[in-house]
Structures are given as structure tokens and as C-alpha cells.
Amino acid sequence: MATKRNAIGILMGVELVLNGANVNLVAFSHYTTLGIDGQIYSLFVIVLAAAEAAVALAIALNFYNNHLTIDVDRANRLKG
């Protein structure tokens, strides 16, 4: 996330981060008394990540339509 200027690249980074969290959730729930709670949490995370990806991509497309680029550094209208 921190190295990408491309909006979609950032999105991929987000997916990776969520995925790492998922691995942790499943692993911890498997090796503790939590049963399948971890799996269900990660299921929710996956679903929400998909939703987030859809919205983020829509935003990226909009951004591209407006700026003809997908470089997030160009998205600086709100810069202080």
C-alpha cells in the first residue's frame, strides 16, 4: 500500500493485508478453543473485502473518468 501510486495497486495491498488478517484469524481459532468462530470472521472479512473492492474499483473508475489517470497523487484537491 505504501509504495503504490496506482489506485488499484493500493487496493491490492489492502486485499493482502486483509488476507494476512484472515490467516491469523483462522489459525488462532483452529489452535484455541474458539471453534469455528475464526473461520466465520474471516468469511465475513472476505465478503466485506469483496464489497470494498467493488466500491473501490468503482471509485477508481470514476477517478479515472475525471482525471484521465489513476495516479492517486493526482487526487490532491483536498490537499491542505
Binding site: 503504490k4 497523487d73 490532491n76 483536498l78 491542505g80
Partner: peptide, 12 residues
């Protein structure tokens, strides 16, 4: 204002 650079990577 200076903190708000408008760069996502910095925010991350």
C-alpha cells in the same frame, strides 16, 4: 495543513 499532503501513501 502541512500534514495533509494529499498523498495516500503517506497516510498509510
Amino acid at each position: 495543513k502541512a500534514v495533509q499532503t494529499g498523498r495516500l501513501r503517506q497516510y498509510v
